[in-house]
Write a protein that binds this DNA or RNA. Structure first.
Lengths: 191, 191
DNA sequence: CCGACATTTCAGGAATTTCTGAAATATCGA
DNA sequence: TCGATATTTCAGAAATTCCTGAAATGTCGG
């Protein structure tokens, strides 16, 4: 691997973290490399930079494309495929959230739904179903919220984040205002 | 494995999903089993239920305890350790978020900070650092928001979730109100 | 301290995942 | 169509992770 020290450190870190994130070392490294690269890279360049086999890079790129984390960029007069990462970090966040949800949450949600349809045959099963219902409820609330929030454009999402827990003050304020309005004009609709 | 069909399906699913969640099959199964169990279980009971080795259960329980997802419950007049999962699903969510952050996010944040301190030695490194700064900024915003939100008590958190994207309407409303108030009383403080 | 359990540790075998090199396939210009 | 180049596939080697059984350690009542 022949990279500027800063880049190398970054790439190696992503490689190491890979296992904790459910991706393998090479995939993590390829992503990191593409992420900090000023220009799109082709497979050969990645091979040179990381010192892994050509086929490994091919597979890694395929996986990253499946995650929508590597996108092919055509370079004029060059037959080779070149790749970048999406450049807007917020977009990357959305993509990551979306893909993780699809792989890590949705299957469980559907299993839970299925099991909750069944009729329990014992007290034990009844209790289990009760617990599953709790889990299902939580996950459903989370995903509903997520579906809502993911549609917000970046700017609004950022301002929401910046607000943080202070949102609750807003909520309190809203409760008061609603109370007031109701006091005066009983027909007012709630927000 | 000798379990009611409903429980068995649930346990098996958690085992299969384990790899996607960065835990191994046994750990996933143990967790699922404890989660739906009406009473705390001891290691022997888990062995019987799952058909895995005693030592495997021991290691699995240790890991779950490290994640704060299994808690020892002492049963009077019984020397054996018994285990449950925290019963409040919201608490489980917090725990999970906390632990994942600690393992999957914090190390990257600290590496990024370190690399951003260094002086770039080339245009390439300068660009890389620029990208790292973007990533760092995003992660920092997210974790700040998270630190804020995690302190909310369950009820408030739930109502926030329920509100979903409609929060933004609240934001718009707030902007208006603040504008009005400012128009009338210039010295008014912002919320 | 002893004996009866309960739990943990750990070496190494089993299972799984990752990675490679070689071969197959695809794509292009001439 | 052919040859040059680019990419993918895939069998099996390498690496890693998981799991087990046996031995060690811990803990309690007597």
């Amino acid at each position: 691997m022949k990279l500027p020290p800063l880049v190398q450190a970054f790439v190696l870190h992503f490689g190491e973290m890979g296992s904790r994130w459910g991706i393998n070392r090479t995939v993590g490294q390829i992503y990191a490399l593409l992420y900090v690269s000023p220009d799109p890279l082709n497979a050969e360049q990645i091979v040179d930079a990381l010192g892994v086999s050509r086929s490994n890079v091919s597979m890694g790129l395929k996986e990253l494309q499946a995650w929508n984390l590597a996108i092919p960029k055509h370079i004029p007069d060059d037959r080779r495929d070149h790749f970048t990462t999406p450049d807007d970090v917020w977009q990357i966040l959305r993509t990551l959230a979306e893909e993780r949800k699809k792989r890590e949450v949705d299957p469980t949600l559907s299993v839970l739904r299925e099991l909750l349809m069944q009729t329990p045959g014992s007290a034990e099963e009844r209790h289990a179903q009760q617990r599953m219902a709790e889990m299902h409820g939580l996950i459903e609330q989370l995903t509903t919220w997520y579906d809502d929030v993911k549609r917000l454009e970046t700017e609004r999402l950022a301002s929401l984040l910046a607000l943080g827990a202070r949102v609750t003050r807003l909520l309190e304020a809203k409760d008061k205002v609603v109370g007031l309005v109701r006091g005066r004009t009983p027909s007012a609709k709630e927000g």
